[in-house]
Design a protein around this nucleic acid. Structure first.
Length: 902
RNA sequence: GGGCGCGUAGCUCAGCGGUAGAGCACUGCCUUGACAUGGCAGGGGUCACAGGUUCAAACCCUGUCGCGCCCA
């Protein structure tokens, strides 16, 4: 006997353990089934499950569980990411609590600490994924810093280096001064910030290089960088400044002479139209500097402190304009302090013209939040533009398809304008770059130290000590290899042969650049094949008000709390129900609570079945069912199978959930079980046996359809009903339509008639204010023999659901105080003496008549339009003719009913 | 500034060329023997706005307004 309510917590623990013990999640590369593979986006190894993971993994789990039932050999590849910056930051903070700096303990000891931290917290998120019910093949779990995956990283690095697609370059890079590392473009987020626009006057120099009274005013948001200016740029077509191009200005504070150059980068509309050029501290200025071959002095160091080393020798003392003492005095100041000092000094000397409030975009490190500083350094780069071409083609040709398709535009836009990818990071935690340097700086790139040493021997002709590059690779470099490195590549493995390219990637659009693009580039270049055939993009999880979840708002949702409170099935179903194509979802406890009642509804429906001795009948064939109710529910079941399957095929998780919800609640519970009640409570016999067998069959089908989204409650019911042993629903067959036997169309019509009749009766009684306890006769007038037979057949259901006490044919005149209904060819008379008032009934029928007349008008107007009849599709015209005819007949019957009232 | 998306019932959203829908919320009735985590019935919408295409527009096109995101 089923408990009064579903105990989610107990079921979850037991079922999950059972599935794992039975190896239900395992891929079978040796099998001859058709493979189906999904790569789980690897979460941060030391992270915890957030709402975004819950969404992403629920969708993947639904797909995987469904495909397994379809008989595919499914590989859902799990694993975790070492998340270089994030993880190193966490461990550094831990050390900082004990007052330790990582440099004090050294690289090896620090890395040891990170591994310890990983060992301690590394399985948190995989445990949490289990709570969610996720069913990846845990036996194949991988970590980006596993030896195999690290070998893949080295192999790819060496290969790309040899192909010239990885190289070292000295150029401007995004620098995180707090962390002391380079970042890639996309790890920087621009935040709108209120700041100022400073207008600085620079004096023009005469031919001897001395300052004159003439000045040019430049506008800048970063006055402190003026010490590193190497030009002033004006637009080539800006008449105001045409005469000044080629002359020089004397840079205040430093006394250095810098040229005025013409460059289209300068926008005549902005500021004064003249802009200071600081090539070592601004990306646009860097390009201008390259075009005009300008010097590029660096004036901020790795900590973003002022450094004058590169300008010191050029400092010139000019009274009222520049001062060596001032400049040397602020050497080593943080950039903010340096700015204040420089602005104050310029103002004191009269070179600050004015200051205006100004909002600007300030680059911040995506992780950590430090203000990013452009900095001139030598880093390793990957030639992303070259790698992007085949990736773009693959999507253009549809070898990889985005769902929804519109994301392809975002992908194209970014890929077509991709910049060199800075892949080196000045961190300790990560894949160390497989490059070694000789004493003269010559670089040897090799799979390991021994191979590098061998190269050096050849190069130098003698044994020479080498030093490995201290830097590590961007984390996304290794995650870009995930679809094949997890399958054993670069070794030839059966897994790689079988599961690559993968079928689907499910991920949020926020990492389309970070991850999807990199996997496409690497996958195609390294293996020659796309990494996945379909990319299913979903949105972000927001809170119930639609706000982005953030630590600062404190509105983050903990999926585990939701699971504790409402059960994993409820959370999973909620996620599916809310996941429209590519749209953000608004999630919160109230939404999950809403859908928990659906889990409860299913449970109670099953309980009812159990109490009525509904149980699977071995060998039962639905095709042998004979009763209309059986035919009807089997054809409804066919429909839900088709709908659910089509929805999953189209990645429409919302439609999948909605079709299950509708069928379970509005068909199975509201009609099938209600109509079955009198039959189940009635005489035993073949009809009752058939009905029980059919209900059991439908319930079993329903459990199978729901297993992917609600694995726990369905598995529990599956076992209790004896559909199969414990934990076997996950391995059951996916239902196929075709259950309804011949004659189902007739049965559909009959049950449709019955439900319409009951609906009309209920509405009428409510409108008349008839208490449910009062039963009323149902008299049929002008009813066809078939209608009479149907009414007779369903008399008990009509009694219970329509509150009808007896059914009879009405030939003569209308009884006193009777209400009338028009249904198809028949008029139904419901005598309710003492309740129905003649005037009220007349008004009610009149209102109904008016409604039908209005409906008929709409269609008639169309038919009166010759263009409509001539041009509309014939079936549409026909449909409207039918409607008009139907309504006309109904109106006639209503008129008859009205005249009978007298 | 460029691109993408969204504006449909109080809320969350589906529908994307042929009679405006669902869930939740709301109102009324119902302690009927699966479920009050329930049942039954009901109210509620110039489908942001303005043009256009079409026999027919929430749906297609153009523009406007508002909101969001991404890229400069």
């Amino acid at each position: 006997m089923l408990d009064k309510s579903f105990d989610a917590a107990a079921s979850e623990q037991r079922q999950y353990a059972q599935w794992e013990a039975d190896g239900r999640f395992a891929a079978h590369p040796e099998s001859n089934k058709r493979p189906f593979s999904i790569m789980m986006p690897p979460p941060n190894v030391t992270g915890t499950l957030h709402a975004g993971h819950a969404l992403d993994n629920t969708l993947q789990d639904v797909l995987v569980r469904w495909r397994r039932m379809e008989g595919r050999d499914a590989l859902w590849q799990p694993g975790t990411d070492h998340a270089g910056i994030a993880t190193q930051m966490v461990v550094e903070r831990q050390l900082a609590k004990d007052g330790i700096d990582r440099k004090q303990i050294g690289r090896d000891a620090f890395i040891e600490r990170v591994w310890q931290w990983k060992a301690q917290s590394g399985d948190t998120i995989t445990r949490q994924l289990r709570r969610l019910g996720a069913s990846p093949d845990w036996s194949r779990e991988r970590f980006t810093m596993d030896e195999g995956l690290s070998e893949a990283v080295r192999t790819v690095f060496v290969r790309l280096f040899r192909e010239g697609l990885i190289y070292r370059d000295r150029r401007l890079v995004n620098w995180d001064p707090e962390f002391g590392s380079a970042l890639s473009d996309i790890e920087v987020e621009n935040r709108e910030t209120r700041g100022s626009m400073w207008y600085l006057r620079y004096p023009l120099a005469d031919s001897a290089g001395r300052p004159t009274d003439e000045t040019i005013t430049v506008a800048t948001t970063r006055p402190e960088t003026m010490l590193g200016d190497s030009a002033v740029a004006v637009h080539p077509e800006d008449d105001r400044y045409a005469a000044l191009v080629g002359r020089h200005v004397v840079l205040p504070l430093t006394g250095r002479l810098i040229p005025i150059v013409a460059d289209a980068y300068s926008d005549p509309e902005k500021g004064t139209g003249a802009v200071k050029i600081t090539p070592a501290h601004d990306f646009n200025d860097f390009e201008v500097g390259r075009r005009h071959d300008l010097p590029m002095p660096t004036i901020l160091d790795a900590q973003a402190k002022l450094t004058i080393a590169e300008i010191e020798s050029d400092l010139v003392e000019i009274d009222g304009l520049s001062s060596r003492d001032f400049v040397t005095g602020i050497d080593g100041q943080p950039r903010e302090a340096a700015r204040r000092a420089i602005v104050a000094e310029l103002e004191r000397l009269g070179w600050l013209e004015r200051v205006e409030p100004h909002t600007l975009q300030v680059p911040h490190a995506e992780r950590g939040g430090a203000i990013v500083e452009p900095r001139l350094t030598t880093q390793w780069y990957c030639d992303a533009a070259t790698l992007a071409k085949p990736a773009i083609e693959a999507v253009e040709q549809g070898r990889t398809v985005f769902v929804p398709r519109s994301w392809e535009n975002t992908f194209f836009a970014w890929m077509r304008d991709i910049k060199p990818w800075c892949i080196s990071r000045q961190l300790w935690w990560g894949h160390r770059i497989p490059a070694w340097y000789g004493p003269d700086g010559h670089v040897f790139v090799a799979l390991d130290a021994a191979e590098a040493q061998a190269q050096a021997r050849v190069h130098y002709g003698t044994e020479t000590a080498l030093e490995q590059d201290p830097d590590v690779l961007d984390t996304w470099f290794s995650s870009g290899l995930w679809p094949f490195s997890t399958l054993g590549w670069p070794r030839k493995t059966p897994e790689f042969e079988r599961y690559y390219p993968t079928d689907v990637l499910v991920t949020g659009f926020d990492i389309i650049f970070f991850w999807v693009a990199r996997m496409m580039m690497f996958g195609l270049h390294i293996t020659g094949e796309v990494p996945f055939r379909t990319v299913c993009m979903h949105g972000l999880v927001r809170d119930e008000q639609g706000r982005k979840m953030s630590k600062s708002l404190g509105n983050g949702l903990d999926p585990i709390t939701l699971i504790d409170e409402f059960g994993a099935d409820a959370l999973r179903f909620t996620i599916c129900a809310l996941t429209g194509p590519g749209r953000d979802i608004k999630l919160g406890p109230s939404r999950v609570k809403e859908y928990r009642s659906f889990v409860t509804k299913l449970w109670n429906a099953a309980r009812f079945c159990e109490m009525n001795a509904v149980a699977p009948v071995p060998g039962f064939d639905p095709a042998t069912a004979t009763q209309p109710i059986s035919h009807w529910i089997l054809s409804e079941t066919d429909r839900v199978i088709a709908e659910a399957t089509a929805a999953l095929e189209a990645f429409r998780f919302d439609e999948y959930a909605a079709s299950l919800y509708r069928f379970t609640w509005n068909v199975f519970c509201d009609w099938l079980l209600e109509l079955a009640k009198p039959l189940l409570a009635g005489e035993a016999g073949a009809a009752q046996d058939e009905l029980r067998a059919v209900i059991a069959h439908v319930l079993g089908t329903l459990l199978r359809l729901m297993q992917p989204v609600m694995p726990f409650v369905t598995e529990t019911l599956w076992e209790s009903f004896g559909f199969g042993g414990s934990g076997t629903l996950a391995a059951a067959d996916w239902p196929q339509p075709g259950l309804a036997p011949a004659g189902a169309a007739e049965a559909r019509e009959e049950i449709d008639w019955l439900t319409r009749l009951i609906g009309e009766l209920r509405a009428l009684r409510t409108e008349m204010g008839v208490a449910p306890s009062v039963l009323a006769p149902l008299l049929l007038r002008d009813a066809a023999p078939r209608t009479l037979a149907r009414a007779e057949r369903w008399s008990e259901a009509l009694r219970r659901m329509g509150r009808v006490c007896e059914i009879a044919v009405l030939g003569g005149s209308l009884p006193k105080g009777a209400a009338q209904l028009v249904l198809d060819e028949a008029t139904l008379v419901i005598p309710l003496e003492g309740i129905v008032d003649l005037e009220a009934e007349r008004a009610r029928l009149g209102k109904e008549r008016a409604r039908l007349v209005a409906e008929r008008e709409k269609s008639q107007r169309k038919l009166d339009n010759p263009d409509f009849v001539a041009r509309a599709k014939p079936e549409v015209v026909e449909e409207n003719r039918d409607r008009v005819a139907g309504w006309s007949a109904d109106i006639e019957r209503l008129d008859a009913a009205l005249s009978r009232l007298g």
